[in-house]
Amino acid sequence: MKKKIIQSTTAHFENNFQNSPEHIFLSPGRINIIGEHVDYNDGFVLPAAINKYICFAVSQNHNSECVLIAKDLNETYRFDLKDEIKPVNIMWVNYILGVVHQLKEKGADLKGFNVVFSSNIPMGAGLSSSAALECGIGYALNKIFDLHLSKKEIALIGQKSEHTFVGVNCGIMDQFASVFGKKNKVIKLDCTSLEYEYHKADFNNYSLLLLDSNVKHTLLTSGYNDRRNEVEQGLEIIKEKFPEVATFRDCNEKMLSDLKETLGDLLYKRCNFVVKEIQRVQAAVTALENSNFVQLGQLMSETHHGLSQEYEVSCDEIDFMVNAVQNEKSVLGSRMMGGGFGGCSINLVEKGSENDLIEKIAKQYKTAFGIELKAYKVKVSKGTTKYKK
């Protein structure tokens, strides 16, 4: 799969520029094992890079013009480094321009370059193809122009590019996972301080299977903003009663239960999910370190129940997929992954059972919703890297 995308991207570069690319880079998508909607609540997340990539074929061209070719879209965009870099009305171009703009602002000595990129990260499935694009171009330019940026700086440049040129106020998890990923390792990331540690994620006789609902409900942005407001309100009430609480990390279920009446049903549910999810991430790290996959699966399923019933960011299609696998002996755990209201479920399943499971659930899903289910088998892989031929 990796070789195929490298070959096709390289061939496309050669056809367009009548020359072989000087460098090939691979930038991965990501999954999040557990820790949903806690990145903006002072919690921890547990992401990992996966073996789905954007491949970049790049060469310097020794003038100030930059040529960007999106192979999959069959689109080309040109700009000159001497001109002011500002957002345009082509979305994929903005992810790259945002990175170039920041590098210029930092005083980086950039020269013109030609790039062809192609992706096998499924679009719209919540696997962070946008972070892979930002971080991949940042990583590539850092290498070819010898900019001496750290991995952390590349991740932050990717995030800021999305904020400023794309207009999406994303957290740091996606970019961090894409750049810092390691094979068979998850990253326990503190989204507030950016402190991180690696933990083993060798799933032995189990594998990770993503089931893509193929739906994206329009509630994502409004629902996300509403949840942020609700948990902020809840935290203010908790702080009034318990001055020792600075963030949800300092909070426990007993405090919430004492304040249940004051918080009201809605805010109580939202805050209860956050407090328990922060605890579940810690428990999941222990389960992974001990290769206790049954425990990890249970935690994932508990997270889904919380996302669906307490945080209320799931949807009928995702709930159906998660419920459909609950009684399958080959499945240890299943949950919605990402912001919600559509996207993928992540499933921890016995190796060898994937194809039968996909066939069975796809059939049930088609009957229930009339929608084709997509499925992706993924492995935990290394982060953005230069491919050595």
Rank of each mutant, 00 (worst) to 15 (best):
K4A: 06
T9K: 00
E14M: 01
N16G: 07
H23A: 01
P28L: 04
I34P: 13
E36F: 03
E36M: 02
D42F: 14
V45G: 07
P47D: 09
A48L: 02
I50F: 11
K52R: 15
V58C: 00
N61W: 10
S64C: 06
V67I: 14
V67M: 05
K71Q: 11
L73F: 15
Y77H: 15
D80F: 08
D83H: 12
E84C: 03
I85A: 09
W92A: 13
H101K: 14
H101S: 13
G112A: 02
V115R: 12
N120R: 06
I121Y: 07
I121A: 05
L127G: 09
S129W: 06
A132Q: 04
L133A: 04
Y139D: 06
L147M: 10
H148R: 09
I157Q: 09
Q159R: 13
C170S: 14
M173I: 01
M173D: 07
D174M: 01
S178R: 03
S178E: 03
I187M: 13
E197I: 01
D202E: 14
N205Y: 05
L211Q: 07
S213V: 03
S213W: 07
N214Q: 15
K216A: 03
Y224V: 09
R228W: 04
Q233R: 15
L235Y: 06
K239L: 11
K254N: 12
M255C: 02
T262W: 00
D265M: 04
R270Q: 13
V274H: 06
E277N: 04
A284C: 11
L288E: 08
S291Q: 15
G297A: 07
H304I: 08
H305A: 13
S308M: 07
V313G: 02
S314V: 07
F320N: 07
C344N: 15
N347V: 02
L348R: 09
G352F: 09
E354N: 10
T367F: 02
F369Q: 05
G370N: 14
E372S: 12
L373N: 01
A375P: 03
K377S: 13
T384L: 00
T384H: 10
